[in-house]
Simulated assay, not measured.
Amino acid sequence: MTDEMDGESGEPNKAASSPKMDEEIIKIWERAVQTQMHFNEMSVRSRQLGLAFVAAALGLALASLGQGKDFALVFSLCGNQIVLHAAALIILGAIMGVLAVSSLDIGVYHQMLRGAVAFGEDIEARFMTPTYGFELGMAQAISHFSRTKKPTATLAGGGMTYGGKTGMSAGKKLKRFYGFLIVALLVMLLAICVVTNLMSLSPMP
Rank of each mutant, 00 (worst) to 15 (best):
V183L: 12
A139Y: 01
M112T: 04
M160C: 13
L201S: 09
A125I: 02
I90E: 00
F127M: 06
R114D: 08
D22H: 10
V98H: 01
A116E: 02
M199P: 00
T152F: 06
T152V: 12
R31H: 09
M138Y: 07
A32E: 04
R45E: 13
D22C: 07
T148H: 05
Q48R: 11
F53R: 04
L92Q: 13
A156K: 15
C193S: 11
Q67C: 06
K173H: 11
A100M: 08
S46R: 04
L189H: 08
L77Q: 14
P12A: 15
L136S: 01
G68Q: 10
K20L: 15
I192Q: 01
S46C: 12
A32L: 08
C78F: 11
P19A: 08
G120H: 01
N13L: 13
S43Y: 02
G179F: 05
P12Y: 09
M112H: 11
S202K: 15
D122V: 03
A72N: 02
G158M: 09
D3P: 04
V83L: 07
W29H: 14
T166P: 02
D105Q: 10
H144W: 11
T129D: 08
M42G: 02
G50E: 02
A125N: 08
L186D: 08
C193V: 12
V195K: 02
F177P: 00
F180K: 14
G115S: 10
T129G: 05
T166R: 14
